[in-house]
Structures are given as structure tokens and as C-alpha cells.
Simulated assay, not measured.
Amino acid sequence: MPRDHRRPRSSIPATNGSVVDGDREGSESLPSGPTEYHRFLLAPDYRWWKAVLAIVLIPVAYVVSTFTLTWGLVFVSESFDLGLVPPETPGDGVVTMSPARLLASNLAIALMVPVSLGLQRLLFGQSGRWMHSVHGRFRWKLALTLAGALVPVWIAYGIVWTTLNREAAGVSGPPATLMSTFVLFVVVLLTSPLQAAGEEYAARGLLARSFGSFAKQPALALLLALLVPNLMFTVIHGLADPWLVVYTFVAGFACAVITWRTGGIEGAVVLHAVNNTILFLVASFFSSEVTIDRSSGHGEAMVPGIILMVLATAGVWLWAQRRAVARLRGSVRRPPGEPVNSRMH
């Protein structure tokens, strides 16, 4: 019988006595043993400078994509007098989202999904499927289950909150018409989930993993992954109102916690997408354009949103715990005759 000259794969005992796959799968560089989402870059060939490079390149890519699409739209609109982008007052912190501007902004941020997946592959030798979750795939069952629970809650919240806080919701502009509602509705429905995914794959995906890779102690690694990317995420929004700052940080922190507790980015994408999409969809019935005011004055209206984000995070945490959602990477080889684990992956 010919000898097998392939490189042997390392085997590491798991906590339940079974065996976990080693550090490589095909041509990919993967961590050894059971690994949480935010520590996934810590493969045997990990280099700290690659994480630093990822942290630098993500904001650069964000600025380039936003400048190219958003400001490119402004240039074209003004050059040909198309009226696609309402005029702004420099320095007032108010951005009016016409359908065209919202489309350009959403697509610019959505580009962060392929950018994040590509950087993970290029710098760390891990294909994009490992950024979806520690199980190497996007868990559609988990995502759809959470969406089914969150969508009805956010529809009720969105209608009530927008009705009571029109200025904070950005619907104090020209009244909606049938055509404006249709156009804005379609743009929001098709691109806002992509925008939310772009922010999640960049902030709670590659950035969180990069910061989490700097510490050997699990608790410190988790703290870095949860806090630092969300501070960056909050700062980049350019907010002036303290309540808006708190709201944005809490929303990002909620997505980070859900990613950690479920072992993947799916739940964070769902929460972010449900929040953004439904609030914009509701706004499309009130106004022909949505105004985003980053200045001070209406931030206290975000308190209900802060509370809802906290409750949603607690609910997902308890649900994941009750359903025993696996949050550690590790392809377990079961002994013959052992029943298949019924956990949701």
C-alpha cells in the first residue's frame, strides 16, 4: 500500500472528548481548536501587522467608495442641473436624503461587504465564508428566524415613533406623493439591507476580528472586539447630539454582542437591516425625502430606540442560549453511533 505523503492535519481534543479539526482546511489558514468569532484570525500563521493593515484599509475603502459614489452623484447632478441632490448648508450637520442620494449612499456602504471579504482572504488566507459565521456559511435559517421575530416589533415601533417624532425621524420636508413614496420605498427596500450588511461586515466583522486578535487573554480580546470598532463606528457618523452618540454606540454594541453570542454576523445584519429599512420605509409614507440631522436638538427622541435595541439584544441572547446556538468553530468528528447534535448552526 503506498504511503500517504500529504501533510498531516493536527488534531486537538475538544472539551467533550471528541476530536476537532486542525489549523488548515484545504488551502485556508484557520484557527486551531474551538474558536469564537472575534478570535478567528488567530491561525498559526497569524501576523499582527496584517491586522493593523486591515484596520487602516477598511476606513480608507469606506472613504473612497463613499466619495466616488455619493460625491460623484452630487457632481453629475450639479453639472447637468438634474436636481437629484437637494442643496445643503455647509456645516449644519443636516443631510437630505433624496431617493438618488440614498441609493448612492447605500450602494457605497454596501461595497464594504466584498471589500471586507476580500481583505480577509488577501491578508489572512481565509475565504469569505468564514466571515459569515464560525461554521463557514451564512445561516439563513437563523437569519430568517430572527427577522420573523424582529420585523413586526419594528413595524409597530416605526409607525408610532415616526408619528410622534416627525422632526427626529426626518420627515418634516415636502409631503409624500404616490410617486415619491413608490420610488423611495423601492430604493429603501432593495438597498438599505445591503447598506446595513456593509457596515456589519466591516465593523462587527473584519474590524472586530482584527482588534480581537491583538490580545491573547480571551476577556481582553472580547473587550477590544466589542468596544473599539464601535467607537470608530460611532465617530465616523459625525454626531453632535449626546443622545445620538449614545444611540449609535448602543446600536453598534448590540450588533457586536449578537455576533459574539451567535457565532456569526447574520443576527447583527438582521437587526441593523430591520432597523434601518423599516424606519426609512415608514418615512417614505410621510415625506418625499428623509432628512438626517446629526446636530443637537432632537437626540432625546432616540431614547425609545435605545431601549428597544437593549431589549432586542437581550431577547436574541436568551433565544440563542435556549436553542443552544453553537458559537465556536470546530468541525467535530463524532464517534460511531453518537447521535447528531441538534443545535442550530
Rank of each mutant, 00 (worst) to 15 (best):
N230C: 05
V63Y: 03
F285N: 04
I159Y: 05
P193A: 07
N275L: 06
G136F: 13
R101N: 08
V151G: 12
V171D: 01
A149T: 03
A61Q: 08
A51M: 10
H38I: 05
A268Q: 02
L184N: 15
V94E: 03
I155P: 00
H135I: 10
V303S: 03
L82M: 15
D23Y: 15
R204H: 09
P304T: 06
G264E: 05
N275W: 07
G136R: 11
E338Q: 13
L150P: 04
S116M: 15
A54P: 10
L57C: 14
V303I: 13
S27Q: 04
V19Y: 09
P90N: 08
L318T: 03
L224S: 04
V94G: 01
T162Q: 12
L142W: 03
R329H: 14
V269Q: 01
V94C: 02
G72K: 02
G305R: 02
L271N: 11
L42M: 10
V310L: 15
R24P: 03
V188S: 07
R294M: 14
V188N: 06
F75P: 04
S180V: 06
L119W: 12
L311K: 06
R322S: 02
A202L: 08
V134P: 04
R139Q: 05
M1N: 05
R47V: 04
A104Q: 03
P34A: 13
R137K: 15
G198V: 08
F67Q: 07
V187N: 13
P335K: 15
G72I: 02
S29L: 12
S127M: 09
Y62E: 06
S32R: 04
G83I: 11
A168E: 00
G238D: 05
L194A: 08
L111W: 04
A208F: 06
P90M: 15
V316L: 07
V134A: 15
F185T: 02
A54M: 03
E200M: 11
G72S: 07
W130F: 10
V160Y: 09
V160R: 11
G173W: 09
Y62G: 08
V20M: 12
P229D: 00
G128E: 14
V270S: 03
Y62M: 02
S65K: 06
E78Q: 13
I265M: 06
